[in-house]
């Protein structure tokens, strides 16, 4: 139960910690107070409680594939929110844009937490009914949470060691990877629910780097590593990355376009 709970908790925490760290870096660069995180954490906690309590009913929706559909919708929503975030954060600093940035950050973290911790809640709830498993499970949960949170903290600080001009692009790249991961996972879920057709396997790296190994788990949580991804998943992954990159580029281009007439005005003065 110990190792199992380490892997389960670590994976969920790591995925959330990655997103939170990157968004925290943006929020600090923007000199924004970190209150948005509190809102997001409480919303995510409430959401996951709601989802885990109703899981039995949710999984019977849509002919027993409700779970996949709900999770996939949340993951697609995160992808879109991150793209919108990339667009609005690279744009101008108007109050409307600032509000949009906050909404994107809060909503994406809340959705991510809802999905991740619902599974943890269900797991812990199951374990609580068997007292003999309690100690190893909780020890494992502590170890997993410790590793996940530590990686998040170190990632947050190490991003600031980058040269100032690279931080934003690096964070955008990480966001793009998260978005790709989310959309690929969502696509897999819809395939599992038979809402999307099964497609051929893109590659098989199971011998080189099994998913069921510590580096495999870490890579899965960080960049969505799969030993045998399907073609559709690859397409969804690429689409997620391109969407975020494109929106970020569009946002920054719009800012440049807006800035130029301003300069022209000033010259006339």
């Amino acid at each position: 139960m110990f190792l199992n709970s380490v892997v389960l908790i670590l994976q969920e925490i790591l995925e959330a910690a990655l997103l939170v760290s990157v968004l925290m870096v943006f929020s600090r660069l923007d000199e924004r107070r970190p209150y948005w995180l509190l809102t997001a954490l409480s919303a995510g906690f409430a959401g996951s409680l709601l989802l885990s309590l109703n899981m039995a009913n949710v999984s019977e929706w849509f002919d027993y594939v409700g779970q996949e559909v709900v999770n996939a919708s949340m993951q697609y929503a995160i992808t879109l929110l991150l793209a919108l975030f990339a667009f609005s954060m690279s744009g101008d600093r108007s109050p409307g844009r600032q509000r949009l940035v906050t909404i994107c950050m809060v909503a994406s973290v809340a959705f991510s937490l809802t999905r991740e911790s619902a599974e943890v809640f269900i797991y812990i709830e199951g374990v609580l009914s068997q007292p003999s498993h309690l100690q190893p499970t909780l020890t494992g949960a502590g170890i997993g949470a410790g590793i996940g949170i530590s990686v998040g903290i170190l990632l947050y600080y190490s991003l600031f060691w980058l040269p100032r001009c690279w931080i934003t692009s690096c964070c955008l790249l990480l966001l793009a990877l998260i978005a790709g991961n989310m959309s690929s996972q969502a696509t897999l879920l819809l395939t599992q629910a038979d809402w999307l057709p099964p497609t051929a396997i893109l590659w098989d790296s199971g011998h080189w780097l099994p998913e069921n190994s510590i580096p495999g788990h870490l890579l899965y949580a960080l960049v969505g590593y799969e030993a045998t991804p399907s073609v559709l998943q690859g397409v969804a992954y690429a689409a997620g990355i391109i969407l975020v990159a494109l929106m970020g580029w569009l946002g920054s281009r719009q800012r440049h376009l807006k800035r130029q007439p301003l300069l022209a005005d000033r010259k006339e003065d």
């Binding site: 190792l3 380490v6 170890i143 949170i149 530590s150 903290i153 170190l154 600080y157 510590i214």
Partner: peptide, 21 residues
Amino acid sequence: IASILAILTLFNFVAALQGYQ
């Protein structure tokens, strides 16, 4: 405090995990 504690936690816990296995 945060980074020292994070590094300490990371190394100790991963070592504990290896030891466990």
